[in-house]
């Protein structure tokens, strides 16, 4: 997924974090203390980096007794000019909708989405009234943050 590419790049786009991953690829199941000692990083910094890397599954951990050990995650990053272009230039569903239906369509979407969000019509009814698929309608709602409580 291109979103995953950006997420991973953001997380490991730092030489010290990349070194941690490289170290764990060679030395599986190390503690944060051991990583810090080997690489010469302060322990709070190591923990911070490990948290950020775990959030994107670039690193995994498991509890062993009273301690936690770390492993390099299973990920593959394809970095090429093409992939970077796709990552940063992908169209949102809203941009796509606007290109197809114009400003008038966006205004209609706004009104229909408000009705659907208020429970005055179902999402399916809303999608049908806009002439779009349910999938597109829900994706649009999600993009504008209308699905969160």
């Amino acid at each position: 997924m291109v979103e995953k590419t950006v997420e991973i790049l953001r997380a490991i786009g730092n030489l010290n974090k990349a070194r941690i991953i490289a170290h764990l690829a060679k030395h599986r199941g190390e503690t944060a203390e051991s990583i810090g000692k080997h690489l010469g990083y302060p322990l709070p910094t190591v923990y911070k980096y490990l948290r950020e890397l775990e959030a994107v599954n670039a690193v995994e951990s498991e509890a062993r007794g009273n301690t936690r050990v770390y492993f390099a995650g299973e990920f593959k990053l394809e970095v090429s000019p093409q992939k970077l272009m796709e990552a940063f230039e992908e169209q949102t569903m809203m941009e796509l909708y606007k290109a197809r239906f114009g400003a008038e369509g966006v205004e209609k979407l706004r009104k229909v989405a408000a009705k659907a969000k208020a429970g005055k019509m179902t999402f399916r009814q809303a999608a049908a009234s806009l002439g779009i698929t349910y999938f597109e309608f829900v994706s649009l709602l999600d993009e504008v943050g209308a699905l969160d409580a």
Binding site: G119, M121, L147
Partner: peptide
């Protein structure tokens, strides 16, 4: 469901 209209239905 996330659909309030559907819950009402």
């Amino acid at each position: 469901t996330l659909d309030k209209g559907l819950l009402k239905a």
